[in-house]
């Protein structure tokens, strides 16, 4: 059973923001209610976000994708434009929880939970997403890359709500991929999650992002690894170096699912694979022109 709490049900965004100081935002509930029931979290007052108008809107225009703070993982999977606007996020959505959880869990909630194994964060980081945060008194944006400050810690202040997430839509010369390694194929907690973005111009990688999940206190970008391939031709050697660097940057723990050593090794394997796949897919496109 859930312990007693108050439940505010504000009618719109303004009311919601007014309720937030002292209240805990409740979106899909797929983390919060589980943690409350297990008594890992406590809350006196929850604030239900489900009445906010147009909170699940998805806009893809002018090279920019923007989703409302209430957008669910299921919404991502169903939206016809997402395959192109966020390939890694779609890869992730297919293996995110089960259908019901996908229909409940919001991207914003997954991002704010701050778990290093939060599945949507590596794809969003690989897409260079930014968050829109609103409070009763101000609205600000913050790069997702600057959002986390430590294990389950982030820069959202208690009176703020993530009202939207946006990112530039990858161009035709950009590949974006995600792989989730887990101990079961369906609905499992991630052992290692890797998302990569590679932009290719002729034989040069002009931009790259590598985001690693479940291998450090927070999901993070392996920027030193990215630096090894930006401006380079992604030969086997370059990719191996970047994968090796990504492994070195990882700082995983041993837990029930896997050892830290295995996780580190898999960062290397998956980073290498995804970079190769991304690079080659772009090469194929070039050749196909």
């Amino acid at each position: 059973m859930l312990r007693d709490f108050e439940l505010d049900m504000p009618a719109d965004l303004q009311e919601t923001l007014a309720c937030l100081p002292g209240g805990t935002p409740l979106a899909g509930g797929t983390n919060l209610l589980v943690d409350l029931r297990a008594r890992r979290e406590s809350a006196e007052r929850l604030v239900w976000l489900g009445n906010i108008d147009a909170f699940r809107d998805i806009k893809i225009e002018d090279g920019q994708a923007a989703i409302g703070g209430g957008t669910t993982v299921g919404d991502i999977l169903r939206h016809p434009g997402m395959e192109r606007a966020a390939p890694a996020l779609v890869d992730c959505a297919r293996v995110f929880g089960g259908q019901m959880v996908r229909n409940q869990a919001t991207l914003a909630g997954n991002v704010c939970s701050g778990s290093p194994a939060a599945d949507s964060v590596p794809p969003l980081l690989s897409l260079d997403a930014e968050l829109c945060l609103a409070s009763a008194t101000q609205v600000r944006t913050i790069a997702l890359d600057d959002f986390y400050t430590g294990f389950k810690k982030n820069r959202r202040s208690p009176d703020e709500l993530v009202t939207g997430i946006s990112w530039p839509v990858p161009g035709p010369n950009t590949a974006n991929r995600f792989y989730k390694l887990a101990r079961r194929k369906g609905d499992a907690i991630t052992v290692v999650g890797v998302a990569v973005t590679v932009t290719r111009d002729g034989n040069t990688c002009t931009d790259a992002r590598i985001a690693l999940g479940a291998v450090a206190p927070t999901v993070f970008r392996a920027k030193e690894a990215e630096a090894l391939i930006i401006g380079e031709t992604l030969t086997e050697e370059r990719v191996d170096e970047a994968a090796q660097k990504a492994k070195e940057l990882s700082d995983p723990i041993d837990d029930l699912r896997a050892s830290a050593d295995y996780r580190r090794d898999m960062v290397q394997v998956l980073t290498r694979r995804l970079l190769n796949q991304a690079w080659q897919s772009l090469g194929e496109k070039e050749a196909g022109r």
Partner: peptide, 23 residues
């Protein structure tokens, strides 16, 4: 009662959800 098994699934406005994770 934690969204792992789906036995409690119902549809809300046509969308399946776990009723154990819905207030």
């Amino acid at each position: 009662e934690k969204g792992d098994c789906g036995a409690c699934a119902v549809q809300i406005d046509g969308e399946p959800v776990d009723s154990c994770l819905t207030l």
